Simulated assay, not measured.
Amino acid sequence: MKISKKGCDLNSCFFCRGCLPEWQAAIALNKITYTIKKGELIFREGDPVTGIYFLDRGLAKVHKQWGTEKELILRFAKDGDIIGHRGLGNENIFPVSATALEESTACFFPLDFFLTTLKVNHAFTYDLMMFYARELQESERKMRNLVHMPVKGRLAYILLFLEGKFGTNGGGLININLSRQDIASFAGTTYETVFRIFQEFIAAKLIDTDGKMIRILKPETLRELVDSQMP
């Protein structure tokens, strides 16, 4: 990662929006903005936590080693999202890795300053608590699906989830460009299985694709599939 000469606007990310206006000068003084290349690690599982990152612009995946050669993607982060918060706690070790999926910029805040911000900015602390609650609910839902739901239902759920999180562009395509391998890692399955089931979805006119991008044609049918396979 390289330090960027251009800083953020101190207004767009989850961190800046939640803090007091009087805290902006302290934010500007303490933050470091990095430029991150596509495929570059932002932090690695097992690294010590020296601070917290907020994605200013771009897309990143948060992932964990699964077995010797596989990874499980836990979540995706987009513009304004926090990354690195899973490392907060007594051990101060990152239990996950984060990798940029496209050229991105991220603001880094040293850990001491971030913890001080929590004590001073009560509204931000509340927003962060609610974020943790939502993420825990989603993680529990995803883990339940991984354990109990057949792969076809998991993929239908993930397509609906991605559309809900990232929206669609003018052509109706889900506004995220993911490889089939990343989708497989998010669903806890293999590339070959994703390819086969997507071909079935395309043949049934549930989805269509444009390169790596996906358009949902029949969201109601996908929701029915998810509900029918929900444990």
Rank of each mutant, 00 (worst) to 15 (best):
L159V: 00
N30M: 11
Q137P: 01
F201L: 10
F131G: 08
C8G: 14
E138A: 07
I202F: 07
H85P: 01
T68C: 13
L159F: 13
S104F: 07
L136V: 10
Q137M: 02
R44M: 06
T116D: 08
Q199N: 15
M129I: 13
D112L: 04
M213H: 11
F109I: 14
A77E: 04
L59G: 09
I183V: 15
N121M: 01
I27R: 09
P150V: 11
F14T: 04
V49D: 07
E138R: 05
P110H: 05
T35M: 10
L55S: 06
N121S: 01
G46H: 08
E200L: 03
V120W: 04
L222F: 00
Y191K: 14
A123L: 09
G51R: 07
Q181L: 13
N121P: 14
L29P: 00
A25F: 02
T209V: 01
E69V: 14
D56C: 13
K152Y: 10
A28I: 00
F108Y: 14
E140A: 13
D47W: 05
Y34P: 01
T168Q: 12
M129E: 08
L72C: 13
M1K: 11
E140P: 01
P21A: 00
K64Q: 15
G87D: 02
M213E: 14
G188D: 06
